[in-house]
Every structure is written in structure tokens, then in C-alpha cells.
Write a protein that binds this DNA or RNA. Sequence first.
DNA 1: GACTGGCACTCTAATTGCCAGAGTGCTAAT
DNA 2: ATTAGCACTCTGGCAATTAGAGTGCCAGTC
Lengths: 339, 339
Amino acid sequence: MLEDRRLAVLQAIVSDYVATHEPVGSKALVDRHQLGVSPATIRNDMAALEEDGYITAPHTSAGRIPTDLGYRMFVDQISQVKPLSAAERKGIDLFLSDAVDLDDIMTRTVRLLAQLTKQVAVVQYPSLSRSQVRRIELIPLNEHRLMIMLIVDSGRVEQRIVECPVSIDEILLADLRARLSVAISDQPFSSVPQCIEDLEQSFNADNHPLVHAVIASILETVTAKLDERVVLGGASNLARYNEDFPMTIQPVLEALEEQVVLLRLLGEVGTETKLSVRIGHENEVEGLSSTSIVSSHYAKESTPVASLGVIGPTNMDYANSMSAVQAVAQYMSRFLSDK
Amino acid sequence: MLEDRRLAVLQAIVSDYVATHEPVGSKALVDRHQLGVSPATIRNDMAALEEDGYITAPHTSAGRIPTDLGYRMFVDQISQVKPLSAAERKGIDLFLSDAVDLDDIMTRTVRLLAQLTKQVAVVQYPSLSRSQVRRIELIPLNEHRLMIMLIVDSGRVEQRIVECPVSIDEILLADLRARLSVAISDQPFSSVPQCIEDLEQSFNADNHPLVHAVIASILETVTAKLDERVVLGGASNLARYNEDFPMTIQPVLEALEEQVVLLRLLGEVGTETKLSVRIGHENEVEGLSSTSIVSSHYAKESTPVASLGVIGPTNMDYANSMSAVQAVAQYMSRFLSDK
DNA sequence: GACTGGCACTCTAATTGCCAGAGTGCTAAT
DNA sequence: ATTAGCACTCTGGCAATTAGAGTGCCAGTC
């Protein structure tokens, strides 16, 4: 009973603070929520909550604001995420439905997410390491230069230009392409290096600089960091919450420009859980200690291939962000699996 | 003589203000610059400059700051841009030299530019409309879906997925590819629609839904807005000049997120001039009236293909920005022409 | 005629003191 | 366990004051 009410008080504080971005006092709480008790009682509860580290007072005579721990408790309490309204779902559908290729899907998705949540949105491209090669093409551009093109089942296309020491022999090239195609089509990326190596052996590649160059380049493509890509959107939303927060947005903007950081943010979440929320200091990226990240995997044919999410101030509307992220991830998954 | 000194005063004001971001008074001017006259004399000149609209006083007892017109005069005075130092040039070389493909070049360039100028950098992809088709590929992905791939002489690759109403006939596809290849290889983008139309005629395309779909899709690709792409970098530099300026960065961030706006910014510059500077209200984009844009074309084999530039506060270091933009544009041009 | 020193004037930015309001913690009473 | 009441503390806003910076103008000098 008492514990119940404390929880209710915490929830009330969080939701009020998220709405107003101002410290909330005992009086305001009883006014706006039907708690059935007097401010003084609430004050006792608040003292206890503060004692336990869920809320804190900026100064003596201000209201209380939730701590990271308080948000954590609040978020954990949202067991099942409320679904979006029919209108919203329809909007998503409309927005994503006529994308023409993967790039298009990604850009649209990130915009959508930013718009739905009014936060900064991040979407990761389907990870190559969890994908299969669908096709390989070798396209000669001129005498000494050719383009390798790997088409991946997720719809991603990786291309790379190879400088060739000798002039390109069309026949050899066709042969190589055919063999490569057999060797790595429908293979998961992870096993491509092995496949290719075997192929190189059988080819006696030392005698063929062309073959060697191509194979080296494919290996690089498959193993290089460019493995992972992310798109970003809604950065202007950062400016908005600059008002409430004296925190400078510089470190945040800087972090957002670092792909590596973004990937770590999205990647930190284990593969088992779908929806993940990291609050304030819970994420250990430098300079993002007063932001929260709501993220989720999305899948192709029910195996997760990458993540997407939003980044915002710790005092964001978690319920809304969570449902938006979840919904968009689901739509993404459906889209990818269709293809 | 008198006119000469007035100009010197204006230049001194601009450079001091750019350095300190604080209004500069007559005393400070004679202290820091060897003008050989007394503050009182300077004051007379300043009064005249204010009269002519080159500088203005924020309030009675502050120093003066340049107006947009003042900056304009200052910039026009920099007739020849001072070249970068050897070290800087070497740095650029190092930074750009091992790019593996066009995307890579673009990302590196934008980073470089942002870093050199400490501003927000924008680089436009080589414009399709001023490029030639180098190659076309039609790659079947499965029974009903194929990928069209246009390889452009600038190194850009445009891909698009086509849903096909009927199952794909390999023979027909090969034929189509061959004919397309003949028809549009080495053609400028602008004449592709015509070429294709002729081809469609000769093919009697109505009888071939596949052909029809492919051709329609190519047309779309060639004419669609996706023609133009830009990359953006150094947005975190925005936060830095937020301090001096009470101007909110929100509208700027918003503008930067709109590709269309960026393109207009870069595109407004006529093809004849290489280096262009637009100051404050001179650029008519909403919300960017207190920023300046320094931009330049870059070329492939001496025909301009696109632009790049930086966006910063009107009180930026024009000399530095101008030389950086010019240098980077030159390097870009050299790189492209090599390929 | 161009320049300069001097001086009165104006405006800002920073400092101080003050007051009202908000919110708390505690205690005594129910 | 809850509540009413009260003393206490701290912030934020407002007004008044002041120091300083910079200007404009005028009379004098080269």
C-alpha cells in the first residue's frame, strides 16, 4: 500500500517533469493527480524517494526532479509498450511504402523516426556480417580499372574500384566472375574469406595479377570497417531541448558525428532483448551522460540484422519514444522480409 | 589618401571583430594596428564609415561592428586568395589520397573542409545532369526483380530496383542490356531520355512488359530529384559559435537538414565565377540571414560538375575559409580528373 | 585643411540589496 | 498513518547604483 503509493508518486513526478521540464512540488502533484492524500503526506513519500535515490532536489526550495535511477524505475514499470494509434500506423505505412531502394528506405525511416519522436534518430544499415552475398559482379571500367560489386540479400550494394596492374582480360574476367559467383553466392559474409581463399588456391592466383587484385579487394571489402553504416536525422531537435538544459549540445553533436560512437550506442544492446533503453550515465559514451537512448533491433526474416533508435535528453517522453521505436523497427523488419 | 585610410580602418575593424567577436572601438584600433594617427581621427573615419553603411554601433557606448556591406567590401578587397601553407597542402593530400571510391572521397572531403575551416562543410556529389553514362548493368535478383545500375563517369553509381510484372527472361534481358549499352554509353545524362525513347520505339516495348518496366525506371532515375546529393559535416562547429551569438541555431540546423536548401545554397552561384561568397542577407534562404556561405565549383577535366563550400556566421574568418574552400576544390578537381 | 587633445554625454554591464513566492521539513494533533 | 500548521531556506525578479567604455564635438595646433 505504502509502497504502491510511492511508486505512483514517482510515476507522477516523472510524467509531470517530462511534460513541463520543471521541478515538481508536492502541491502541484496532488493538484494534477488524483492521489487522495494531502501534500504533506506526499512530502513524506518524496523524502523517502529522495533517500532511496530516485529523485533529487536542485535546491532547497524547488520541487524534485527524477534521477537517472528514477527514470530507470519508471521505464521498467512500463512493461508492455502501448501501441501506436491507427492513424499513426497508417502514416508510417504511407511514409515508407514507396521507397525505391535500400538507401531510400533508410533515409525515410530515419526521418520518420525523428518526426514521430521529435528526437534525434539513428538507423543502422543492415549489418554485412549478418548478411549473405546474393550476387557478385565484376564490371570493367577501362583497361586498368574495374568495379567489384557485391549485392547483399538485405538489398545493400557494396562497390569498390580496383586498380589492375595488367590490362584486363575479358575472358579471364568472365571466368573469374563465374567462379566467384559459384563460390560465394548465398554464403554468409562471415564465411566469404574462407571460400575465397580456397578459390584463390585453385586458381593458382600468383600467375594472375588480376585475380589476385580482385580477391584482395574483396577480402578488404568484406573485412573492412565499412561493414557498418548509419544514417542520422532530426539533429535540429537537439536545439529545441537546449532551452531547458544549460547543457551544451556541442559534445552531443560531436558524438553524433562519430559513426563509431553511434555504432557503439546502437550495438551495446545485446541481441536477446528487442527494446532497449539506456538512461543518462548508463551509457558510457563520453559527453552523452545526460542523454538517453531508446533502441531496438530490426530483423530480416526474424534474424536481427541491425538496430535503430533515438537519442534525446534524459527527461524525454519515454513512453512515446519507446512505442515509436518499436513500431518503426517492426515496420522495418516487415519491409526487409518482403524483399 | 583619406579614402585609403578609411579602407584600412574598415579592414582593421573587420579583422579585429572576426578575431575577438566583440565590438571594436577607436582606442583598441590604434593600439593594435599601426595606423599612425590618433583615436580621434579614427573616430572621424568611423563616423564616415557608419554614415556609408559599412559599420554600425550596437549601442551608443560600444565599439563598432561591420555590417554585411562592410564584410562585402572587405571580401571584395581580398583580390587574390592567399594559398595554403605547404604543411596544409600536404595534409590535404594525405587525407584524401587513399580514398577507395567516390563515397569515400566525398566523406573525406567534407571532413577535411570542416576541419580546416572549423565551420560546417557541405559537398555536393558530382551532378548527374552534367555527367555521362559510362555503363549500364541489368542484374537479375530473382524471378521478378532486377537491379538497374548506372555507372557514371564521375564514379557515381545509381542503382534502382525494378519489380517486374512477368518473370524475367534471361535472353531478353541480355539483349536489352546490350542495346541499352550501345544506346546510352558515353551519352550525357541530358540526352538519355531521348536515346531511350528511340530505343523503346524500336523495341516495340508494348509487347515486353519487362522492357517497359526497365525503361520507365531508367527514365525515373535520370529525371528524378535524386539527381543531386550532398554530404554535410562539422555540424558540431555550429555549437561553438552559438556562444557569441544569441541567434538560435535551430533554424540553421533545420536548413542544413533540407537537402533542397543546401543545393540551392550551393547552386545559386553562377557557373562563371569560381569562388563565391554570400554574406548574411545576401543569401535569401529563410533563417540563414546571419550566416555566410563560401563556396566554389569543382570540376572534372575542367568542366565544373558540382560545388562545395562552408557555412558559418557572418563574422567568420573569410580569408581562411576562402583559401581552404579554394584549395579543397582544386584538390577535388584534380582527383576527379585522375580517375 | 587635416589632425589632435580634452571634455561632456550616453549607454551598458555588473553589483548590490530587497522582496515575494515556492517548497520543504518538522512537530504536534487527529 | 495521515494531516495541518509553521518556521525556514532558497531562488528569481526588480530597482537602484556605479564603473567603465566609447562616442561626438569643439577648440586649438601644425
